[in-house]
Each structure stands twice: as C-alpha cells, then as structure tokens.
C-alpha cells in the first residue's frame, strides 16, 4: 500500500486541477463552510431517517420519511465535492493521515450498509402499514448507519490533530502514516 499511497500523492500533485483556485484567499474557508453545511444536511436527513427506523416518530410512515433522503444525498454530494477539493490540493495531508484512513473506512462502511438496506429491507419496510415497527434487520442497519456517520464526523474533525510528520526509520504498518519526503 505504501507504493500506492506515494504514487497517488504524486499523481495528484501532477494533475491537480483545483490547487490554484484553492490557494486563493477565501476558497479554502468557503469550501470548509460548505463541507459543514453539507454535514448538517446529511445528518439531518439521513440521521432522521435512521432515527425513524429505530422508533422515533412512529406515526410517520417510513416511506414518507424516506422522501427526505434526497436532501441527505445533496449534503453528501456537496461533501464529496468539497472533500475532493481539499484532497486534490493537499494530498499528503490526507493520504498519509491515519484519521483520514479511519474516515474513508467508515464512509465505505456507511455506503455498504446503506446498500444492504436497499437490498434487504427496502421492500419490506415500504409495504408495511404506516405506523408499523421497522423490521429488526432494518433497525440494525439504521443503528450501524448512525454510528458510522458519527465516526466519519469524529475522524474528519480529528484530521487536523493527526497531520502526518516526516517519516523517521523503517515503516512497517500496512498504511503509511508519515510523509516519506
């Protein structure tokens, strides 16, 4: 993985299309603000849907509550775009950052978990009468979703406290967590 990480950082440095923009005075702070607004949309819409599956607001039909999900996806799209802008501007600050590795792991967990919902529970949940309990499987998926997104926020917020230092000595971990130059 070390070679891949180094290749990725170098490739981004060679091709980054947004670095000049992001190095203007206010681009980075504005992108960060959008990233936080996207977080609110995502937690608001997807978090509320998870809470509904877990039993909050049981009189709301689950299918009706699901109509908020596109707003959560809008937040997610904002955050993938702004997140990519950070990554493409300062790649070594992320690719070698253990908190970023944690964040990406739990982003993928949240993504896989959401696909599990649509593969296993979507139909059952949607034909259920308005006030019915979500099936246990859907509740487990909702709990995993909420937890995974919370870990994504924690790891994202902690990025700045795990900035990679320059490597010293031989690195044996699977992922490089220091800058090799």
């Amino acid at each position: 993985m070390h070679d891949f990480q180094v290749w990725l950082v170098k490739a981004i440095y060679r091709h980054s299309p947004v670095r000049d923009l992001m190095h203007t005075a206010w681009a980075w702070p504005i992108a960060e603000s959008l990233h936080f607004i996207g977080l609110c949309l995502l937690i608001g819409a997807i978090g509320s849907f998870d809470l509904r599956l877990l039993g909050v607001g049981k009189r709301i039909p689950i299918a009706a509550m699901h109509r908020f999900i596109p707003w959560g996806l809008l937040g997610f799209a904002i955050n993938i775009s702004t997140g990519a802008m950070f990554l493409l501007t300062e790649p070594e600050q992320y690719i070698f950052n253990p908190s970023f590795h944690l964040k990406v792991t739990f982003l993928m967990t949240a993504g896989l978990n959401a696909s599990m919902f649509y593969l296993t529970s979507y139909r059952r949940v949607f034909v259920a009468p308005a006030s019915l309990e979500a099936p246990t499987r859907a509740k487990v998926i909702a709990a995993i979703s909420l937890s995974a997104w919370l870990v994504v926020i924690v790891a994202g917020r902690l990025l700045t406290f795990f900035r990679p230092a320059q490597c010293a000595g031989e690195q044996t971990a699977i992922l490089l967590t220091c800058v090799p130059w």
Partner: peptide, 16 residues
C-alpha cells in the same frame, strides 16, 4: 468534535 456532532443534529433537524 462534540461541537461538530451537536451542530449536525441541531442545524440538521432544524433544516428537516
């Protein structure tokens, strides 16, 4: 971190 999580729920549910 707590401040970011609280923000997500306060501003997020308000937005919903």
């Amino acid at each position: 971190t707590l401040h970011a999580i609280g923000m997500g729920f306060a501003a997020g549910i308000s937005a919903v």
